[in-house]
Design a protein around this nucleic acid. Structure first.
Lengths: 212, 212
DNA sequence: TAAAGAAGACCGACCGGTCGTATTTATTTC
DNA sequence: GAAATAAATACGACCGGTCGGTCTTCTTTA
């Protein structure tokens, strides 16, 4: 952000803290996140955290923003490398399931965990999560409309409904994979979207580049 | 359970406590459930709860069982009044969305909230939730297979996959309805399953009795 | 009168948050 | 260039509050 070396180092520290916070919160929730445990896992003191964020809520909001950045890097960016249209929709869903299957977060999905944790608790955290969720939904709908505009999907497709169905397959995967058999869950999540797209767009190969 | 009047009255007390626990836990989670708040909401003392359950975990497990009973009464029982096959599948899904839309629980869905809360926390609560989830999944699959056996669905339908897609529409409704527009969410949840069933079974009317 | 049940004070542990202190780092002065 | 000083930073003890859980006491009922 600035040319100052000290602040840059501080930014790196902040990012490391927030990465750990995303990981812990994905398992225990943003409210269940203990600042003492977070500090211990990083080998720093709890009071030091308050030099970077004035309160736990401020750290929670920063953690959400960090999770958004991770999501953009791990799921959205790979999908945007696929060509517009149905193949990009599928690439986005596949990247999402890949991310879950890679088990980088102990809770499976940071957003699913925290959104269920806060969906009945008014406050700044809930409002921010609602914003993020609305933006994600709008992004998915935009991808579907692009496929319609390209003629890959029938023009009478309900873009919002199809986006809902695709997202639902991902949400369900986040929940089931930790309680039931993960392999079966991920296969269903992938096949559900694949079958839906194939039914609407039978003449287009949906295989990403380089895969069988 | 017994003929004893005192114990029967105790059973009623237990049920009232557990109903309140289901309601509170649907919003704040089973771990976020405060025994003090639970006792206050019922006008009883916190220590009195320990006369009925030896620990918080025991009360949490009993709360899960109570939520299962509520689910059976509110969702499964109405669906079983519909004729076997595709119409019963749809009746089950509609009863589920109706239950969410009725807003009887502040958290929307007890199981969604608690399963995301505990899916990364080993222990008795998580194991019980996994059992309940597995039983629900098996029940859904059984309904789909019945529809296949009746010839209402093509014989090459993947019952587990279709059950996954139907459940996913419900899970997503539980999450989105509290953060995004509930009306739109419930409409998508209903249309998603309805469209899926209509595509597989075009010659069967899916309207429940008495509805337009 | 005896027995059973609820109530509320109480305990140790953990929470988010604050503050005085000590260590370190960087700058200045001899 | 070395020593001394000043400023920034991180630490850990500590605070009030809430948690799950226990225990003694009091009320009530048979």
């Amino acid at each position: 952000m600035t040319v100052d070396g000290r602040l840059a180092r501080g930014e790196r520290t902040r990012t490391a803290v927030l990465d750990a916070a995303v990981s812990l919160a994905s398992a225990n929730g943003l409210d269940g996140l203990s600042l003492g445990h977070l500090a211990d896992s990083l080998g720093v003191s709890k009071s030091g955290l308050f030099a970077h964020w004035r309160s736990k809520e401020a750290l929670q909001l920063a953690t959400i923003d960090r999770a958004v950045t991770q999501w953009q890097e791990r799921i959205i960016a790979p999908a945007l490398r696929a060509p517009r249209g149905v193949r990009r929709i599928r690439a986005l869903h596949e990247a999402r399931i890949d991310f879950y299957a890679a088990q980088v977060l102990p809770g499976g999905c940071f957003f699913a965990t925290t959104e269920f944790e806060f969906n009945a608790r008014p406050g700044a955290v809930r409002d921010r999560l609602a914003e993020v969720f609305a933006a994600w939904t709008a992004f998915l709908e935009r991808l579907v409309r692009e496929a319609v505009d390209l003629g890959e999907l029938p023009s009478d497709v309900d873009a919002a409904l199809l986006a809902y169905e695709i997202d639902a397959c991902g949400i369900a995967a986040a929940m089931r994979s930790r309680l039931l058999d993960p392999e079966t869950t991920y296969r269903h999540a992938r096949l559900g979207v694949l079958g839906r797209l194939r039914a609407l767009c039978p003449d287009l190969t949906l295989l990403p580049e380089g895969q069988s």
